[in-house]
Amino acid sequence: MPALFPSFAKVNLSLEVIGRRSDGYHELRTVFQTIELHDLLEIEVTADPSIALTCDDPTLTCDDQNLVVRAARLLQSTAGVTHGARIHLQKRIPMQAGLGGGSSNAAVTLLALEQLWGAALSVATRQRLAAQLGADVPFFLVGGTALGLGRGDRITPLPDANLPTIVVVNPKVAIPTGPVFRGLQAELTDELTIHTLTACSPDNINWLAAGNDLEAVVFRAFPLVREVRDRLRALGAHLARMSGSGSTVFGLFEDAAAGEAARQICLEAGWLAWTSPALGRETYARRIGVTGSYPPS
């Protein structure tokens, strides 16, 4: 009987691009937040070492390039596991949408198979494997509200944000992350700036005012994403912001009825839309049913 593990999406409450790093990545300061919208992983352990992935979305590649398969194989090789797994992914989080669906799938696969295979990893090893898989993957080991520095992969848990109704809207546009960052034409970040950011107290992070530095690039190339942001504002969101590198936009509504009305209007416009509450860290850990890799904040 397969074991079931939800794989939750995230939004970036803020995303600041400090500059370009010498390794080609960008130095970021971002505040992540897990939300209710989720995929579902069905995992069954097998006696042989093969990893087989299927998905209900025929557009998703299920070969060795998929992050789920890569996570499973990376755990196998690191922990010396001889078992395998059959994994079925029920996909609900849009792809290339700024919601971290693939990263979440990878992190939950790591955590779930570590438990199912009895492959106990140290916290440091688990974090290292997650960072190898992708910049957003380490965040999904902890969930809740968290600060991400470096590529976004150096995670510090923050007190859970007290958020109102969250309406998440995707205009059915897929946006690859790479071209968005290249469009910034950011300068190299000096070491003093990186040190200052690393040393700053997480309590001083004002995500409400920080914004998302990638919006300008995306709005120029994909004006529909700006239209979604402006529509949510017009419908009463006291904050509407793009998540990650787009194309998803989220709006915060103080009134739940107004949020639901906005969601319905966005659906009528032909967009994907959800009311998706924030998930705090303890709730996140309980819902995925596996132990994360960071101590409580």
Rank of each mutant, 00 (worst) to 15 (best):
residue 142 V to N: 14
residue 206 N to A: 15
residue 214 L to N: 02
residue 165 T to K: 07
residue 188 L to E: 13
residue 181 F to R: 04
residue 164 P to H: 13
residue 213 D to N: 14
residue 141 L to W: 05
residue 137 V to K: 05
residue 151 R to V: 01
residue 186 A to T: 07
residue 156 T to I: 13
residue 124 A to E: 15
residue 148 G to K: 10
residue 198 T to Q: 12
residue 136 D to W: 07
residue 121 L to Q: 08
residue 196 T to G: 02
residue 147 L to I: 07
residue 176 P to I: 08
residue 157 P to S: 12
residue 198 T to G: 13
residue 177 T to C: 13
residue 143 G to C: 04
residue 161 A to L: 01
residue 145 T to E: 03
residue 150 G to W: 10
residue 186 A to Y: 10
residue 167 V to A: 07
residue 161 A to W: 03
residue 166 I to C: 03
residue 168 V to P: 02
residue 156 T to M: 10
residue 122 S to M: 08
residue 139 F to M: 05
residue 125 T to I: 13
residue 211 G to A: 10
residue 165 T to C: 14
residue 149 L to I: 05
residue 162 N to Q: 15
residue 130 A to Q: 05
residue 190 D to V: 06
residue 178 G to Q: 12
residue 195 H to E: 14
residue 211 G to D: 04
residue 151 R to C: 01
residue 209 A to T: 12
residue 138 P to R: 05
residue 155 I to T: 02
residue 167 V to E: 03
residue 157 P to W: 11
residue 127 Q to G: 01
residue 160 D to H: 07
residue 176 P to T: 09
residue 174 A to W: 05
residue 153 D to Y: 03
residue 122 S to R: 13
residue 215 E to S: 07
residue 139 F to Q: 05
residue 214 L to E: 03
residue 177 T to D: 06
residue 133 L to F: 07
residue 182 R to H: 13
residue 185 Q to W: 01
residue 208 L to G: 00
residue 204 N to H: 08
residue 144 G to W: 03
residue 128 R to G: 01
residue 122 S to C: 13
residue 147 L to D: 06
residue 213 D to C: 09
residue 188 L to M: 08
residue 146 A to Y: 09
residue 200 C to P: 00
residue 195 H to R: 14
residue 129 L to M: 14
residue 136 D to R: 08
residue 162 N to E: 14
residue 185 Q to D: 14
residue 160 D to Y: 06
residue 181 F to W: 04
residue 147 L to A: 12
residue 169 V to R: 00
residue 143 G to Y: 01
residue 191 E to P: 09
